[in-house]
């Protein structure tokens, strides 16, 4: 919906009109609705495991089970390298990070379709919804991260080759990059799927394929030279590598790779916001 500051501020609070500027992103409006964001985060988090007995434990069970599976299939049967790190720890780190990214992306990508009913009845900045998804998924990530730290402590205690270093301090930046990237890509896809739903199919299996093109299940060092650029072109790869390097001392960390991820995030976020705010004005007519 278009909103612009009228020429004479004292006369009108806002003007509803068909078009608007390309970069009229209404971030101020978003800030005004911050209470709604926190309430939506709470709603997502609280309602997810209502009427379950194990409750939030499921946040931890999910990555644990897939880590065990990965350890058996990729580690023991296929015998992929883990850079000398304990297999469980290696796969758990990849899993937790990838789960956050793919979870945010899939959930954000259906913002318009899933909330068509709500959006059709009341106005609030539509960006509130994907932002709240990224935050509530971050709470999940936090729980899983604590779980990961416990695991790591256990392995250090038992004397495994795990050496955290100063790059651990990069974690907040890595997190922001993942959040921004999944938010940006998510809102691009949600804007693309309001009228023509084709892109939804692409995204569904695309995310699954993309996991194999990142270093969630193998280290970058094991990749032959000629494929390395391909794997590195996945902007999640430098993030996972930097994470492994910081927390466990193994991995291919480079500022250049991370810079590429950061650039990708900024561009995707900008494109996403522009597309999203343009679509949100009239998506109700075509959804």
């Amino acid at each position: 919906m278009s909103l612009s500051v009228p020429e004479n501020k004292s006369d009108w609070d806002f003007v509803i009109q068909p078009g608007k500027g390309l970069f009229d992103l209404q971030l101020k409006e978003l800030w005004r609705y911050r209470d709604l964001i926190t309430l939506l985060v709470r709603r997502d988090f609280v309602s997810k495991f209502k009427q379950t007995i194990l409750g939030p434990a499921w946040f931890v069970i999910q990555p644990l089970l897939s880590t065990i599976m990965f350890t058996i299939v990729f580690g023991n049967i296929a015998q992929l390298s883990t850079d000398g790190l304990p297999k469980m720890l290696f796969y758990l780190s990849g899993n937790v990070l990838w789960l956050y990214f793919s979870g945010c992306l899939t959930m954000c990508s259906t913002t318009f379709i899933d909330n068509a009913h709500l959006f059709g009845k009341v106005y609030f900045p539509r960006l509130v919804v994907p932002v709240s998804i990224v935050i509530s998924q971050a709470l999940t990530l936090a729980l899983q991260f604590v779980f990961f730290l416990c695991f790591m402590g256990y392995f250090i205690f038992t004397g495994a080759e795990v050496r955290p270093n100063a790059c651990i301090l990069l974690f907040p930046i890595l997190f922001l990059l993942m959040a921004g990237m999944s938010l940006g890509l998510g809102i691009i896809f949600s804007s693309l799927t309001t009228k023509y739903r084709d892109m939804r199919f692409l995204l569904d299996f695309g995310i699954r394929l993309l996991m194999f093109a990142t270093t969630a299940i193998y280290p970058l060092s094991s990749i032959p030279e000629k494929y390395r650029l391909f794997i590195l072109s996945n902007p999640m790869t430098p993030i996972i590598e930097a994470f492994r390097y910081g927390f466990m001392g193994q991995g291919s960390f480079s500022w250049a790779y991370l810079g590429y991820s950061a650039g990708f995030t900024v561009i995707v976020l900008l494109i996403g916001m522009v597309m999203f705010t343009r679509i949100e004005r009239t998506f109700m007519d075509t959804v």
Partner: peptide
């Protein structure tokens, strides 16, 4: 719907105070 900003008009404007 237009007044409550759920959808944008095709043409024209609404000024609101």
């Amino acid at each position: 719907k237009i007044l409550s900003r759920v959808t944008a008009p095709t043409t024209g404007t609404v000024k609101v105070k």
